[in-house]
């Protein structure tokens, strides 16, 4: 059976797409799934750094597309911690036009035969890079932060995904600050759901650990002390079909339950 091909996208930059891919990929691999992460951000690659695999890159996505390397497996980098987790890095010295959506489809078609999950890290923006990243995906995770601008861009992306026939993207709300939500200074889950109205996959609290883990090249999901890591572990469980209650982020018991009910009522 072919694996699931999921693009992680957002429209806006800097909301945590790459971090999300690194954590979900690692989290799925921890559950013994065979996972490959593709960095589609050609020219501005980061996923290798976040995974701590930068120094192992020999071939990249463009080499595979142009068939510079003999096989796709030559370009796949095995994770240093988990043997069932792989990265297909982006080229750094090229740009988004270096590959076409058709080439991307061909690459992913090959990979999905071998892997349970193909995760595509989409670049910011809605141009060629987005077209490439989305071309082969059948599912999408939209990442947003609780900021008006990020939510606007997420809304635009959801519309564009529908044009690409991905009708039911799911949402990760990243970097939520419970203290600010409590004081009414930050958009809460309800506000965001009002606008975007798509299924919530997870809420990731703002967590300094993420910065530390990103700098160390060790996804937070590996760290049992990290709040964000726990959120990502829950996200992975939901992706695998488990029912996991949402973390109560804003202290008022029941508000997320209410939100869940709202979702299930649909």
């Amino acid at each position: 059976m072919a694996g699931r091909v999921i693009v992680v996208t957002s429209g806006k930059g800097g909301v945590g797409k790459t971090t999300t891919v690194a954590n979900i990929g690692t989290g799925l691999a921890l559950r013994h799934k065979k996972v490959v992460m593709i960095d589609a951000d050609i020219g501005l690659r980061n996923l290798d750094v976040v995974m701590g695999l930068e120094n192992r890159i020999i071939y990249d996505l463009v080499d595979v597309a142009e068939k510079t390397c003999r096989s796709i497996n030559k370009a796949l980098i095995k994770d240093k911690r988990l043997s069932n987790l792989y990265l297909l890095p982006a080229a750094q010295t090229r740009n988004k036009d270096a590959i076409s959506p058709e080439q991307m489809v061909a690459i992913v078609d090959e990979l999905k035969e071998e892997f349970d999950y193909v995760l595509v890290d989409c670049p910011a923006g809605i141009e060629r890079g987005f077209d490439n990243a989305v071309a082969a995906a059948t599912e999408a995770i939209v990442v947003t932060t609780p900021e008006v601008s990020a939510v606007r861009d997420a809304d635009r992306i959801i519309g564009l995904l529908q044009e690409k026939e991905i009708y039911e993207p799911v949402l990760i709300l990243n970097r939520l600050r419970p203290d600010m939500v409590r004081k009414g200074d930050m958009m809460d889950v309800d506000d965001i759901n009002d606008i975007l109205a798509i299924k919530l996959l997870g809420i990731v609290p703002d967590d300094e650990e993420i910065i530390i883990s990103t700098n160390k090249g060790e996804p937070a999901v590996l760290n049992n002390q990290s709040k964000a890591g726990e959120a990502f572990r829950n996200i992975v469980r939901r992706m695998e079909g488990e029912e996991v209650p949402f973390m109560s982020v804003n202290g008022e018991p029941g508000i997320f339950g209410r939100f869940l009910k709202l979702l299930n009522g649909k």
Binding site: R152, R156, A197
Partner: peptide, 21 residues
């Protein structure tokens, strides 16, 4: 959604929201 534009000669009825943008 944001970025989508619909035109019609006549009326428009939306069974949903019209989002910012």
């Amino acid at each position: 959604r944001n970025g989508q534009r619909l035109e019609n000669e006549g009326d428009i009825v939306v069974k949903g929201d019209l989002n910012p943008g």
